[in-house]
Each structure stands twice: as structure tokens, then as C-alpha cells.
């Protein structure tokens, strides 16, 4: 097991380096430093302003290797844009935000908690609600109820998440006044503010989730072991809730990790509407202020999380399926 984890982690190294390389290409090759400087500096900057911005960000250095002698008359071959970029990301020495003039790492630390207070409960709650519902629908497969539920799912999936947020905020927050509409409080008082975003997040993912889990269950229902269990007289409830559910765990686990990127989108919009000072909000501010260092770091951090998530999923397969062992 330890060997397997070590090997998976080692295999992830090239991918992580690839992500670093990709962000370098994106922000240094595809976009010239000058273009970035002009966007960041806003309307009509002077040539001198652009030059100072570029040199203060170290973007006037050579691309890959530095063959010029520095102030101390020594060679610093790795003092180049590429190596500095890689060093920043790989060693977690994140740069400073261009707009807030604060280290991105300290910003991340400050913003991650509010984000997690929405995404984690929403994530767990949606699994807790969707799975039993999907099993229920799978139990009545082929009936009128099943077909109606499927159609409702398609309808729910066809509503853009913006509409869920706008209607939810308007009716539950403004008209019925059940929840505060906007704001956030650090500490335990946060629950009042995150409740409505969580409900909306769960509701907006319900249609797609339900339909997916139903498909997974139905694929299992067609398997041979179900027929065997039926033949020996196991009750249908027992088959569904014990045999099928256990066997369906692998696709379910896979999709839960795959849904992490969607959680980012969801939290982005929710944080914007409900004024929650989290990662999504940070991302939005970075977009509107052309804050490239923040975006660069966020791309890297979220990719790391995603890679870590997929390794964790592979490991968790052993927990749900005794047939899978790792050497």
C-alpha cells in the first residue's frame, strides 16, 4: 500500500511540472509581458510605466537561461523567467498579488475557510440526498414514476445555475426573508450566511446528479450477480441497498472527484451573489483587476488539489472494493 502511494505520488510529479510549464507558456509565451503590463496598468500607461512594471516583475529577464553577469559580477544562469516561475510554484514561494499587494499564500489562507464552509457541506449534503433518491428511482425503474423523475431531472439540468441563485436569493432571501441576503461572518456565526448558498448549491446539482447515479445503479442492476441474488430469493430491497449500492461505489467515487471542478464554478457564482469572501471571490477580483499572479497561483493550487483528489480516489477504491489491492 505504502509502495503504491509512493509510486502514485512519483507519477504525479511530471503532471505537476507539466501544469507549471503550461502556466509559464500561457503567461509568458502566449501573452507578451508588455501586453500583460498594459492590461494590468489600465488605461493608456506611458512607456516608462510599462517598463518599470516589467522590470519590477522580473519579466525583462531572459526567457530560459541568464548568461549576463549580475551586479555581483557572478553568473546566475538560472535567474531567468522560466526558472523563477518554476521555483515560485514548485517551492510554494508564491508571488505577490498585483492589485492587493499581499502575498498570494496569505490571501489563500485567509480565503479558503469561507469557501470550504460552503463547498464541503454542499458536497456532502448533495451526496446524502441524491444517492438515496437515485436508489429509490432505480427501485421503481421502468415505471411511470421513473420516467417522470427522469424528465424532471432533464428539466432541472436545463436551468442555468444563475437562475437557481437569482430565484433562490430573491424568493427565500428577499421575499420570504428566511435567510440573510448578503454578507459573511467569521467563526460560528457563519452558519446563518452559508445556509442559503448551500441549499442553492444542492438544488442546482440535483438533476444532473440524480440522473447520473440512476444510470450507475441501473448498469449494476443488469449484472449477473443481481440475477443470482434474485434467483436465490433475496428481496429486492436487500439487492438494491446492499449488493447494488456496494458495487456502484466505484463509479460514484470517480464522479465525486470529477465533480470537484464544478464545485469551483458553483462557489464562484455563489460567493459573488452572497458576498462571501472566499476563493471564488478572490478569483473574481483577480479577473476584474487583471491580477495575473493570483490567477497563475490559483491554476496551480487547484490543479494540485485535483491531482491529490484523483490519487485519493484510487486509494479509496480499496476501501470499497476488496477485490482491488495495491502492490
Amino acid at each position: 500500500m505504502a509502495y503504491y502511494i509512493a509510486r502514485r505520488l512519483l507519477l504525479a510529479v511530471p503532471t505537476v511540472l507539466g501544469v507549471c510549464l503550461f502556466t509559464f507558456l500561457l503567461f509568458n509565451i502566449f501573452a507578451s509581458p508588455e501586453a500583460i503590463a498594459r492590461k494590468q496598468l489600465g488605461k493608456n500607461p506611458t512607456a516608462a510605466q510599462v517598463q518599470t512594471w516589467i522590470s519590477s516583475h522580473g519579466m525583462d529577464k531572459p526567457m530560459f537561461f541568464n548568461f549576463e553577469r549580475g551586479r555581483d559580477h557572478a553568473l546566475h544562469p538560472f535567474d531567468s523567467r522560466f526558472w523563477n516561475h518554476m521555483k515560485e510554484l514548485v517551492l510554494f514561494q508564491f508571488p505577490e498579488s498585483d492589485y492587493l499587494h499581499e502575498k498570494v499564500s496569505s490571501l489563500l489562507k485567509e480565503k479558503i475557510v469561507p469557501s470550504l464552509t460552503i463547498t464541503v457541506p454542499a458536497f456532502l449534503l448533495s451526496i446524502l440526498i441524491t444517492l438515496p433518491l437515485a436508489l429509490f428511482i432505480a427501485y421503481y425503474r421502468g415505471t411511470y414514476l421513473d420516467r417522470t423523475a427522469l424528465f424532471v431531472c432533464v428539466i432541472l439540468m436545463s436551468i442555468v445555475v444563475l437562475n437557481y441563485i437569482i430565484f433562490g436569493q430573491y424568493f427565500l432571501g428577499i421575499v420570504l426573508k428566511y435567510f440573510p441576503v448578503y454578507g459573511y461572518e467569521f467563526g460560528l456565526g457563519a452558519w446563518r450566511f452559508v445556509l442559503l448558498p448551500i441549499i442553492i448549491a444542492v438544488a442546482s446539482g440535483l438533476g444532473g446528479g440524480l440522473r447520473f447515479y440512476r444510470t450507475v445503479m441501473l448498469n449494476e442492476v443488469r449484472a449477473d450477480y443481481v440475477r443470482t441474488a434474485m434467483a436465490k430469493g433475496v428481496s429486492e430491497e436487500m439487492i438494491l441497498f446492499k449488493h447494488v449500492l456496494k458495487n456502484a461505489m466505484i463509479p460514484i467515487l470517480t464522479v465525486t472527484v470529477l465533480s470537484i471542478p464544478f464545485l469551483i464554478t458553483g462557489s464562484l457564482l455563489l460567493e459573488m451573489y452572497f458576498g462571501i469572501p472566499g476563493m471564488g471571490n478572490m478569483m473574481l477580483n483577480a479577473i476584474s483587476n487583471h491580477d495575473y499572479p493570483v490567477i497563475r497561483v490559483l491554476v496551480y493550487v487547484y490543479s494540485l488539489l485535483y491531482i491529490a483528489g484523483s490519487i485519493l480516489t484510487d486509494i479509496s477504491y480499496t476501501l470499497v472494493d476488496p477485490r482491488i489491492t495495491f502492490k
Binding site: 503550461f22 464554478t265 495575473y292
Partner: peptide
């Protein structure tokens, strides 16, 4: 493998920003 490990929304944001 590299591209798919970058969450799509962030990849989009990064590309649209440049």
C-alpha cells in the same frame, strides 16, 4: 493528462485573461 488536471473553469479564466 496535464490539461485535464487543470480545472476547466480556471483554464478558461486564464486563457480568456490573456
Amino acid at each position: 493528462q496535464v490539461l485535464s488536471s487543470i480545472p476547466a473553469i480556471l483554464l478558461l479564466i486564464a486563457m480568456l485573461m490573456i
